[in-house]
Amino acid sequence: MRRLRRAFPAGDDRGTIAMYTVLFTPIVLMLAGLLVDGGLAIHARQRAADMAEQAARAGANQIDTDALRATGRPVLDPGRARAAACDLLGAFGTQVTASRCDADQEQVTVSVEITVKPQILGIVPGFGSFTLTSTETARPVTGGNGP
């Protein structure tokens, strides 16, 4: 009987899979972390912008009716506008880390800060929570062409 020779000598490829696993597992985890936590950051930024926009609009609704009747121009009551904007942000509770509401007779400006804790990259040293800030401005408008 004739012996067949093996195409690959025994022992030449031992441990190759283990080496690939050790090398590529951290890379795959980092990519998954960037995907998940990057999406989380984008969502948080949109949420911060939405909160700031809603609060600024709530403040811009606080028109001084006496000044409007006298001049025909929408003029804000700065104290009421600031209070309305900050009250709306207070309704969001702990989602808002910090906020600032400013108002004058022309416009309301609201800044919102949200802190996000990464879900996957948080296990890597140096990738702690990060802060996203959004600032929006609203002005009162009356009239228009629509119904």
Rank of each mutant, 00 (worst) to 15 (best):
A60K: 13
R57H: 09
G93T: 03
G72Q: 12
A67G: 03
Q54L: 07
P26Q: 05
V22E: 08
P26Y: 05
E53H: 10
A55L: 01
L34I: 12
A55V: 01
D77F: 01
G33E: 08
L40E: 04
G72L: 14
A41G: 09
M51L: 11
G90P: 03
L35C: 04
L88A: 04
A48Q: 00
A81E: 10
I63S: 09
T94N: 05
D77N: 15
G39F: 09
T94S: 08
L31C: 10
M19P: 03
A32C: 15
D77M: 02
L89V: 04
L31F: 04
D64H: 08
T65E: 15
G93S: 02
C86E: 03
G38Y: 05
P78C: 14
A44N: 09
L34E: 12
A44P: 02
L68W: 08
G38C: 02
A84C: 03
A48N: 02
D37I: 10
G93Q: 07
A49W: 07
I42P: 04
G59Q: 00
C86D: 11
T71V: 15
T21K: 02
A32M: 13
G59N: 07
T21S: 15
L34W: 12
L29R: 01
V28F: 15
A84G: 03
Q54K: 06
D50Y: 01
A60Q: 09
R45A: 11
G33Y: 09
Q62T: 03
L31K: 06
A91Q: 15
Q62D: 11
H43D: 13
A32L: 15
A55G: 00
A70D: 15
P78S: 07
D77H: 12
A52M: 08
F24I: 14
R80W: 02
L23I: 13
G79L: 09
G38S: 04
G90A: 14
T21P: 05
R45D: 11
F92G: 00
D50G: 09
R45H: 10
A44V: 03
G38F: 11
A49K: 00
A56H: 06
G79M: 09
L88Y: 12
P74R: 05
D87E: 15
G33V: 10
R47Q: 13
G93M: 07
L76P: 08
R73H: 09
G38I: 08
M30K: 08
A84H: 11
I42V: 06
R57F: 08
R73S: 14
R45N: 11
L40T: 13
A56Y: 13
A83L: 11
P74Q: 07
G33F: 01
R57L: 14
M51K: 00
A32G: 12
G59F: 04
L35Q: 01
H43V: 07
T94E: 04
L88M: 10
R69G: 09
P78N: 14
G72C: 10
N61L: 10
I42F: 14
T94C: 09
A41S: 01
A58R: 07
R47L: 06
L23C: 09
D64L: 11
A83D: 14
Q46K: 05
A49F: 07
V28P: 07
A41R: 05
M51S: 00
M19D: 10
T94P: 11
L29K: 04
Y20L: 15
C86N: 00
